[in-house]
């Protein structure tokens, strides 16, 4: 399904955007993907790179379940085409790291935010994006960032609490 060429941790090589077999840097690993460059990044990540923590929920940027980081910024993987991601760093829930990520995931676990959990990769990737740039978000800041990420279990009370908790723990 996919081939991993090597395990360089600094991989990010620009290349021809319409080449037949695009190489993507996902979680600091290069993936040669035998896919149409117009394929949404979501399906390349899930079906071809085999990283299934990023979820499909709507395919139309309406739910945010597929949120990944592109060069550190939260984006909807269902709207990014594979060719848009070439030469850029894609980070998924499986590869996100650092003290903000640890604080967010830790707060999510200590408050038991999850219910069905299907949207939570998107929630967490967005929350990490928020706290990375705004260490002390207000409720309004949280609404602005998180309103795009749907949770049908409506775990929103705890999502909000966990973001505040992570901010507190980050000092």
């Amino acid at each position: 399904m996919f081939r991993v060429k090597s395990f360089s941790f600094e991989y990010a090589m620009p290349q021809d955007k319409d080449s037949a077999m695009p190489t993507l840097s996902i979680n600091n690993r290069p993936f040669d993907l035998d896919v149409d460059p117009a394929m949404p990044l979501l399906w390349a990540i899930r079906d071809h790179a085999g990283l299934t923590g990023t979820k499909y929920g709507c395919g139309a940027a309406l739910c945010g379940a597929c949120t990944v980081h592109l060069d550190g910024e939260p984006v909807r993987a269902c709207q990014i085409q594979v060719r848009d991601a070439i030469g850029r760093k894609v980070t998924t829930i499986e590869g996100v790291e650092g003290k903000v990520a640890a604080a967010v995931q830790g707060a999510w676990q200590s408050l038991d935010v999850v219910q069905c959990g299907y949207c939570q990769s998107g929630q967490i990737m967005t929350a990490i994006g928020l706290l990375s740039q705004n260490p002390k978000p207000t409720d309004a800041d949280i609404n602005n960032a998180m309103d795009a990420i749907v949770c049908r279990c409506a775990t929103y009370v705890r999502i909000r609490a966990a973001i505040h908790e992570a901010a507190k723990n980050l000092g």
Partner: peptide, 27 residues
């Protein structure tokens, strides 16, 4: 008591049927 599914669901590790991969699988 802490939920048993919190860690898996906050790290992308939890496997839903959507995530099942079988050799040669078609969609």
């Amino acid at each position: 008591v802490p939920r048993l599914d919190s860690v898996g669901k906050t790290t992308g590790a939890t496997v839903y049927s959507m995530d099942i991969k079988r050799p040669g699988m078609l969609t």
